[in-house]
Write a protein that binds this DNA or RNA. Structure first.
Lengths: 251, 251
DNA sequence: CTCTCCTGCTGATCTGGGTTATACTACGAT
DNA sequence: ATCGTAGTATAACCCAGATCAGCAGGAGAG
């Protein structure tokens, strides 16, 4: 059944507002999006590689990942999505998915039909701009991942991911950067970092022994943020898509 | 001096038109963008890492790359840009560059002020949408690079890049996918592929011996496209951001 | 209450690609 | 002419991370 889900949508609105100013009518339009809730169990694919999709996938609770896959089945995650994120806003424009979406933990998602998103974007140019900004934020994380995979050691990569997730969780109001829910298996982490699970295990052990990371239940604790950031060469600048003026809309 | 450069801008217009329908007035607006030409010699940086920029960088001739850099100076290219591409459309929204832009060969670029782009985007919602689509196309290449760097062998990565560039050059009307200008050094290729120049050299030799690639002057020839694509696991789908209806604008 | 299967963990061994160093062009500058 | 500089090529050696082959504990399914 498709209907309005104000509470989860306010998460999404919050994410947009972090980067874009939105008029009252635009905020209402976001909160009024028709959508459909679904719960997906850990390890299930939400969108299959190559699917033709007609809705976007908004994470409400849990953790989801965009991925691509080789012929032999090995996966590479290309993005992690926390509550408030839309995993595949690009599908509005490229409806044949050249990616898949996987639930890393038990995850609640909202399926928002493309038709709805197109409608609000055309009625409110400010929202179209906000969607563009959202895509740019996503892409700048992607660019950092390229650097990490291409040039950094296993430890530095993992450290960078932890810093990135910490800041994103904090920005989203879902924890502190030094302690946040991050319920991911070593296998999934390996798929994100372009490593094997064995090596992730060994590297995490070294980092734990070095007091850089601590996994407590389903949360991570980063006690020595500065040292971790130094190892990662982490600079949060790439996460700051400037909170936008509305110039493009109102000029 | 800032003025209109219709001929080079028509390249950019062509690129937009491959993905978006544009009304006559919108096309004129693109061709009428005020801009400034510049020639940059090979290996010079066009935009420095961390620069505050107030214009976008449109490649008119040559080859440019977006990159990021580690503390020790090692580079990782995150995108290659051929004539018609805007290297940093995202800078309109994120004017503090968390990337650099480098001329790989002697390159002619057009600096298009953000103010100009914002003006046409606000006057023509169809252009704002076209810019969004452009960003999405850029990001889907980025996602493929993540997969290549994370999970593929040196040979497969290089093969994939050659296939990607072939298709892009062909789409841009700058050659055939099996033979196109690609004047890149092994060092630069190494920076793109997350490898060392030494290993790129070894791998290229193997591929040459295997009749997969041939460098003739400043062009590449790919005589056995199918075999190359198989090695690369190359599927051009990710390059196809659907030529767009104008729904978001005219709905 | 047992039987999986998943997850974390470990050790032994192997290899793709990194590192370092050197030589051989072709070319642009003086 | 010659010198310096990029770029390609090569060889010898090294190492981070992959591969393979397990084991143990815990949680869900029957």
């Amino acid at each position: 059944m498709t209907h309005s889900n104000q509470k989860p949508l306010s998460l999404f609105l919050g994410r947009l507002l972090r980067r874009s100013e939105l008029a009252q009518a635009e905020r209402q339009a976001v909160l009024g999006l028709k959508s459909q809730v679904a719960q997906v169990r850990a390890h299930r694919d939400i969108v299959l590689l190559g699917d033709q999709v007609n809705s976007c996938c908004l994470v409400v609770d849990g953790l989801a990942a965009r991925f691509d896959q080789l012929a032999d089945g090995r996966r590479q995650l290309t993005a992690l999505h926390i509550p408030g994120d839309i995993c595949d806003l690009q599908s509005v424009v490229a409806p044949v998915a050249s990616w898949g979406i996987e639930a890393l933990t038990t995850t609640t998602v909202l399926h928002v039909p493309h038709a709805e998103l197109k409608r609000v974007a055309s009625e409110h140019p400010g929202l179209a701009l906000a969607f563009w900004r959202d895509t740019i934020a996503d892409a700048s994380i992607l660019a950092k991942w390229v650097v990490n995979l291409g040039r950094k050691s296993a430890q530095s990569r993992i450290a960078h991911l932890l810093c990135e997730m910490g800041v994103r969780m904090e920005q989203a109001g879902l924890g502190r950067r030094a302690a946040f829910a991050f319920d991911i298996t070593q296998n999934q982490l390996a798929d994100a970092m372009g490593l094997t699970a064995v090596h992730v295990n060994r590297t995490l052990q070294a980092m734990r022994g070095d007091a850089l990371v601590r996994f407590a239940g389903r949360t991570v604790e980063l006690h020595d943020w500065d040292r971790l950031a130094r190892i990662a060469e982490f600079d949060p600048a790439f996460l700051q898509v400037m909170r936008g003026e509305r110039e493009l809309v109102d000029a």
